[in-house]
Every structure is written in structure tokens, then in C-alpha cells.
Design a protein around this nucleic acid. Structure first.
Lengths: 143, 143
DNA sequence: TTCCATGCAAACACTTTGCACCGTG
DNA sequence: CACGGTGCAAAGTGTTTGCATGGAA
């Protein structure tokens, strides 16, 4: 599950305690913002800096170990790529986040390829909308 | 095309020069960020403030006259709703933005409804990916 | 004449950058 | 022991808010 050392070596980058801890935090937290990851990592080492979090989330994403998605109009969230690839549904009323198998998008992927020569990045996709039987009041606004 | 006065009246809001100019700017610019809209409006009236732009884009969106989408990791873009509803494809390499008819999403809308009781907001959707024959170099990074 | 809307300035949330020091390979 | 990584502080970008004044209805 943790390919970190090999992947880093392969690209001339170094293995550091921070990188290991950040990857572990992303794994542990599920969908977490840089700030939440920062807080989590700081539980294990006293002095980490936010800038290190940002720099390394970028590195880990380049290495294909984590991905990010925009689940709100605020900060992005990062999640580990250990499991299966998936895209997200977000309800604007109750804020629930549903992970969906890319297979559901198959017909659309085909159409976009044929009609536009476009290859969608499904793992980055977030679909906003509403649960049909959501208890929360329907929220027309975007925020 | 310009339902602004009636829609405002209907919700106890007032018709102001700024609101008209902002709506006109959104219409004229296509997909524009708040800052681009700000610049455009300022061409017609000397003293407008960015906060007025933000406040009114929110109002215009509530009234159903404009919509926003996230076409980059930076500022959102607003577009008028006069034409047909559509969603967006964005190529990470060449940055081209393609508007697509919601009909393409029909099978997915059906599946999400059946499987998750979820009603997607297609007009807000942005699908990142790559043009297959994009001249620009493939860009693995997210930015 | 009543409130909603505006301008202004300051604050805010999130992210990036420059630089000197640190530590992996 | 070279060069990539880190902490720190400061700056950058995009957005929001409080408040006094202005103007539509």
C-alpha cells in the first residue's frame, strides 16, 4: 500500500518523515483539506509547517499516491488512491458526499470521446446536486 | 432576455444601475471571473466596488439570471443563462473550454437517480481532462 | 421616508514564495 | 558533501464584512 520510497527514488526525490506522515494522514482522514491534514500531522511531529503540507500534497499527487477533488467552494480535499478510483456526488442541502464507481460514467466517456475527442479525468470529477429525499431544505444558492 | 426588473421586484429587491451593468457584462463576456466583470463594469461607471460585484453576482444567481462554474483552480466564472443550459469540458493541456448539451449526460442522470436518489445540477458541472489530439504537452499536474 | 444597496477599508481564508538552515542519499 | 527539503515569515490572490452614506420605491 505504501509505495512512497520507491516512487520517490524513481523521480530523484527524497524520503522524509514529513512525506510519510502526510501520506499516512491522507489515508487516515479520507477526504481532508490541507488544513485538516496539517492538524493531523502536527499530532505526530511538533514542528511542521503548512507550506510543507502544500508542497508535498503536490508531490504526492504527481507520484500518483493521492488525488484531490473540489467538494466545496472552499479548500480542496485530498484522498488516497489506494482503493479504487471514484468520483463524487455532493448534496448542496445536507452536504453528504457519495463516492461513485467510474463505470456509471461509461456511456458519457464514450460520447465525449466520439463527439469531442475528449478524455475526461473521472477521478477528479465532482457532481453537485441534491438528494431527492434530503431532509434538509432545498438550497438554491450555490455556496 | 432581460427579466431583471420583474425578477427583482418579485423578491423585494431593487433595480440599480450596477445590477444592470453587471448583468450586461456577464452577457457580453461569456465566461468571466468576478474580477473580469469588475473591469468591464468599470468601463461604464467610474466608481464601482468589487464587493458590489460579488454581492450582485450572488443576487443574479439567486434570481436565475446567471450561473457560475469552476473552470480553473482559481476564481469561478459566471455566464448568463439566456442561452441553453450546458456543462463544460476543460482541457488541462490547452485550456480550451467546450460547452456540451446536457442531453449527453442523460444516461448518467438516470443512473444517479435510480442508484442514489440523487439529482445532479448539470449546469454547474465541469469535467476536466484532455483533448486527445491536443498539441500542448500532456500535463499530469492538477494546477 | 423607509430600507435596500453601495463604496470604502479592513479583515479573512487559502496558498505561494524567498531565504537560510537542515538532513537524505 | 551536494542538493533537495524544511521551517519561518512575508506576500499574494480571491472573497467577505461592518459601517456610514446614498438612492429606489
Amino acid at each position: 500500500m505504501n509505495d512512497l520510497p520507491e516512487r520517490l527514488r524513481g523521480s530523484g526525490k527524497r524520503l522524509t518523515a514529513q512525506r510519510e506522515l502526510i501520506l499516512r494522514a491522507v489515508d487516515a482522514l479520507g477526504h481532508a483539506t490541507p488544513d485538516e491534514i496539517f492538524t493531523e500531522v502536527r499530532k505526530h511531529v511538533s514542528s511542521v509547517n503548512v507550506s510543507t503540507i502544500y508542497r508535498n500534497l503536490e508531490v504526492l499527487e504527481e507520484l500518483g499516491l493521492v488525488r484531490h477533488a473540489h467538494l466545496s467552494d472552499r479548500a480542496p480535499t485530498y484522498h488516497s488512491v489506494v482503493g479504487h478510483e471514484h468520483f463524487h456526488l455532493v448534496c448542496r442541502s445536507c452536504r453528504v458526499v457519495i463516492s461513485v464507481d467510474p463505470e456509471v460514467m461509461a456511456p458519457v466517456i464514450a460520447r465525449l470521446g466520439e463527439d469531442f475527442g475528449f478524455e475526461p479525468d473521472i477521478g477528479h470529477l465532482t457532481v453537485f446536486g441534491h438528494c431527492v429525499d434530503c431532509e434538509a431544505p432545498k438550497d438554491t444558492a450555490q455556496k
